[in-house]
């Protein structure tokens, strides 16, 4: 499983048994979750400016939703072990809850579902593919689960609007969380922040090539 011999098309994998997390893996996923909690806090500056624009067409708000799925995608692509997406997203959701989210414990349920969506996507590829395509699929699945939950728990819309919202959310999940998350992880590797993770090894391999 040498990372130096990988071709650019395949992904670098976590070392050792997949289920054996290093301390670094655990702490990194957890601190990433907390950092995303802080980002969501700061994100209000943007959200408050953007959301009135969607006032007359609520389902389009789903287009902003992908941002909330980023912790799961980034956690998965950084750590590359089963459970990383769920763990990171749950920590981020806990921070939101503890800081007083408007949805209260609802964010824990959302966080669990969103993490689960990404876990399903990476499990489909047996935790061996970590490219942008898998990330986009993960983001889309996470968005679909979240939209389903919101349709049941929050929104009393006619089915058509629910579907429109869900579609917007899935697009956002695939593009913002999936492709955006994959790009974000590559940028973090370029900044030298992932030197001891598979993404850092991929970056070094690409530089050598």
């Amino acid at each position: 499983m040498s990372t130096t011999s990988t071709t650019p098309r395949s992904s670098a994998l976590a070392r050792g048994p997949l289920g054996r997390w290093r301390s670094l893996d655990l702490v990194t996923a957890a601190v990433l979750g907390v950092a995303f909690g802080v980002v969501f806090w700061g994100w209000d500056v943007v959200y408050n400016v953007l959301s009135p624009g969607f006032g007359f067409f609520q389902p389009a708000k789903g287009l902003l939703g992908g941002v909330w799925l980023l912790p799961a995608v980034v956690g998965a692509l950084v750590v590359r072990r089963p459970g990383a997406a769920l763990f990171t997203e749950l920590v981020a959701a806990s921070v939101e809850y503890l800081l007083g989210s408007g949805w209260s414990v609802g964010v824990l349920i959302s966080g669990g579902l969103q993490g689960l969506g990404v876990e399903i996507a990476v499990a489909l590829f047996a935790w061996r593919r970590w490219g942008a395509g898998v990330a986009a699929l993960g983001g889309a699945l996470a968005a679909a689960l979240e939209a389903l939950y919101e349709a049941f728990a929050y929104n009393d819309w006619v089915l058509g609007w629910d579907l429109a919202y869900g579609a917007a959310f899935v697009v956002s999940g695939a593009v913002v969380a999936g492709l955006g998350g994959a790009a974000l992880v590559r940028a973090l590797a370029r900044a030298g922040a992932l030197q001891r993770f598979p993404a850092g090894a991929e970056h070094r391999a690409a530089q050598r090539a």
Binding site: L24, T28, V31, A35, V38, V39, L188
Partner: peptide, 10 residues
């Protein structure tokens, strides 16, 4: 912030 978080975690 994410760069900071990753360095802090390390």
């Amino acid at each position: 912030l994410l760069v900071e978080a990753l360095r802090r975690a390390a």
